[in-house]
Structure formats: C-alpha cells, structure tokens
C-alpha cells in the first residue's frame, strides 16, 4: 500500500483498516474496521479561524449564541475579528467550542474526526503507523503534559510529520472529536472495574483496555470533562473528510 497521499489542500489521505483501540466498549468486537478518510495535515490556525468568523459573523465571539460557546470563546483574540498578534495567526486556534469547531469543518465540506479516526492517526510516530507499544512514544506524549502551559504555543505544523504525513497530533494542543460526548468514562474513573451501567443505559460504557496507555487515557479524560460549549486554552481541532 502506498504511503498516504497528500490531497493537495491541506488534507492527507489515510487508508483506514483494522485498528485496535485503547478504549474498550462493552458491546464492541475488537479490532475495529475503520473506513478510509482524509485528515488535515495540521490543526486549524487562528488565522484560518479568523477568516471563518469573518465569513460567518454568527460565530464571532460578540455574536455567537451563548448556548454554542462559553464566555471564554476566542477570548485570547484582541477583538471579535482581530488577532492579538501576527504570531498568533500561525498558532493553532484554541478556546473554540465543539459547536464552533463543527461549524468550521462543515464550512469546509468536512467534519470533526471520530475518536477512532483520530486515535488511529495519532498512534503513529515518524516511521511507524502504530508505535503505541514503544515506551518512547508514550514518554514523548507525557513530556508535553509535563510542560507548563504558560509558554506560548508553537506554530501549527512545525513538528515532524508522522508516518501518515500528519503533524501535531501530540505535543501542541488537545483536539475535539466529533463523538467526544460519547466518551462516557465515569467521572471517578477509579471505578473502572465496576462501571456505572445504569448511567450508560446498560449500553456502551467505556473502559480503558490498555491500562498502560496513559497518554490516551488522559486525552479521553480531558474530552470527557467537557461540554460542547466549553473552551480551554489548550484545546483546538482539525477536520476530516470522507473519501
């Protein structure tokens, strides 16, 4: 199979296939079959998101419906249609709600990635499509968690691409997924052996299959703490397109 082909417009084609997720669904049979898709090479930047709100003023921070975005939405910009600095333009956009991120992707004829699509691409390192069993892969991810977020974000796309040709899946920002709200990990995750089945209607309660995979665990914990209108200083997104 040829290496993932660049689409020419910032998207990279990912062949999909069988994938073993670190998450464990009660009713799922592993491994999962993932259809081919195309994913943005890097996270969406402030500059790109600024263009989006200019074209769709209902997503400006002073015009957005509060049900779609909390008070901190794009609060790091100088004005509703103005960035704080030129440098900020190249940085990944953060402080975006799930609703705003979804709208951005829709405007591109795309959508947010599903968790498994994101996880599949993020399992790669620079040379291997699945590097998750390599302790170095984990340590590198945990290393980002260990860095204080008081430092300025790097520009999007500055890191080495992974084996799919996709950049910045780790080490820069968290990213929204389309199905983040289905990541129903119990709020007190220490009950993993005894999930609250009532809460999940006896259905798709999640637990972590690979307990060593802290890197994934923390991302899931992060996403599961959020509501769709929430924003944080470290949470951005990228889009995928069906192929």
């Amino acid at each position: 199979m040829a290496a993932a082909a660049a689409e020419g417009d910032g998207y990279v084609r990912v062949p999909g296939g069988n994938f073993t997720t670190a998450l464990q669904y009660e009713d799922a049979r592993l491994p999962l079959r993932i259809a081919p898709f195309a994913i943005m090479r890097r996270p969406v930047t402030n500059q790109e998101f600024l263009a989006f709100v200019m074209a769709h003023p209902q997503w400006r921070r002073d015009q957005v419906a509060t049900v779609f975005a909390g008070p901190d939405y794009l609060a790091h910009w100088r004005g509703p249609a103005r960035l704080a600095s030129g440098e900020q333009g190249a940085q990944p956009v953060t402080r975006v709600s799930w609703f705003a991120a979804s709208a951005y992707c829709q405007g591109q004829g795309a959508r947010l990635p599903k968790w498994h699509e994101w996880e599949l691409v993020a399992a790669a390192d620079a040379t291997r499509r699945d590097a998750r069993s390599d302790p170095a892969w984990r340590e590198r991810i945990l290393g980002w968690y260990a860095r204080p977020s008081s430092r300025a974000l790097p520009s999007a796309g500055a890191q080495t691409p992974n084996a799919y040709g996709v950049k910045d899946l780790h080490g820069v920002v968290w990213e929204w997924t389309e199905d983040y709200s289905a990541l129903l990990v119990a709020a007190d995750n220490r009950n993993q052996g005894d999930p609250d089945r009532n809460r999940f209607c006896g259905g798709a309660a999640l637990s972590i299959a690979d307990r060593d995979n802290y890197a994934v665990l923390m991302r899931v914990a992060m996403l599961s703490s959020l509501n769709g209108s929430d924003t944080t200083m470290n949470l951005g997104f990228r889009c995928v397109r069906e192929v």
Binding site: A186, D188, A221, S225, L226, N234
Partner: peptide, 30 residues
C-alpha cells in the same frame, strides 16, 4: 483557565462514594 488537565478532588474526610471525586470533575477554566 490555563490548566492543561481536568482535575477533581477526593477528600478522605468526606462520607460518600469517591469522596467528592465524581462531583468535582472540572475541566480547565471551569
């Protein structure tokens, strides 16, 4: 707001499941 992680608190002095953990799961900026 500038936290990277969600956090919660389990107080051993609390009577109740999780010691408050599930009730206090808090995203950055919340």
């Amino acid at each position: 707001p500038d936290s990277k992680m969600p956090h919660n608190i389990d107080l051993h002095g609390v009577t109740g499941p999780g010691g408050g953990a599930a009730s206090s799961f808090t995203a950055p900026g919340h």
